[in-house]
């Protein structure tokens, strides 16, 4: 197996833009997923059963179907509902929706982990529901759910590879394209593997750093 580095140096521009597209869709998908997930979790924890039941069905549906199928529904099915999206917005929407249900489940366990008494204390002092969520529940549950959140963020990083199937020019699409152009499939795919490993590893390292930061005050939990 001979290795010719010119395969990569010749396409440095394409690879760079593919990397940026991967980063862009990933981070936008994560932000959208976190926001939607928080909304779903709050609605599930504080909503009545008319809110909770349809959400439950939605969560089950998303969790039971492959990401690729959801992506097809958004991208190819969207126009039938009057939502014609370009590949990149469709991909971000797909990633966000897919991630949101998993984020929501993580947030929900987080909400349930904060002792009831703490909320009663806040209630007695006149602190509102919303203030209570942001000031008391979210900071505390972050410590607990951070590992799960970081894991989900890396999952979404890996799912961005699937976006190549709806022709988003991200890293996988760019490198397989170079592969078919030069017939150096194994080399380009190896490069791709290493690229994703570095991305995922960086992300989880960053997560661990964050965990020690956030967890400092919780050395010993009262209760």
């Amino acid at each position: 197996m001979t290795f010719d580095p010119s395969i990569f140096t010749d396409h440095l521009g394409d690879i760079g833009s593919g990397f940026l597209v991967t980063l862009g869709t990933w981070s936008s998908g994560v932000v959208l997923g976190l926001a939607l997930g928080m909304l779903i979790a709050v609605a599930q924890v504080f909503g009545n059963r008319f809110v909770r039941a349809p959400l439950r069905v939605f969560i089950e549906l998303i969790r039971s179907t492959p990401f690729l199928v959801q992506l097809f529904l958004v991208y190819y099915g969207g126009p039938s509902f009057g939502i014609s999206l370009d590949p990149i917005p469709a991909g971000i929407l797909g990633l966000g929706v897919y991630g949101s249900v998993y984020f929501a489940e993580i947030f929900r366990t987080g909400f349930e982990s904060v002792a009831r008494g703490q909320l009663e204390a806040a209630d007695c002092l006149g602190i509102t529901r919303l203030q209570c969520i942001w000031r008391i529940q979210v900071p505390q549950m972050l410590v607990m759910i951070l590992p799960a959140l970081v894991n989900m963020v890396t999952v979404l990083c890996k799912e961005t590879a699937v976006l190549s199937i709806i022709t988003i020019p991200e890293l996988t699409m760019v490198l397989t394209g170079i592969g078919s152009e030069t017939f150096a499939f194994v080399e380009t795919l190896l490069m791709l593997c290493i690229g994703y490993l570095i991305l995922v590893e960086l992300c989880s390292r960053l997560g661990m750093l964050l965990e020690t930061r956030v967890g400092r005050f919780m050395s010993r939990q009262p209760r």
């Binding site: 204390a121 806040a122 007695c124 002092l125 000031r135 919780m218």
Partner: peptide
């Protein structure tokens, strides 16, 4: 608003300092 409550299990917020616990409602409410 004129009722203060003290619990068996204290129910302090563990992510805030002692002063932070006392000031929270003063600031937000």
């Amino acid at each position: 608003r004129n009722v203060g409550m003290v619990f068996q299990q204290f129910n302090l917020w563990p992510h805030m300092t002692a002063l932070g616990n006392v000031c929270e409602a003063l600031r937000r409410v």
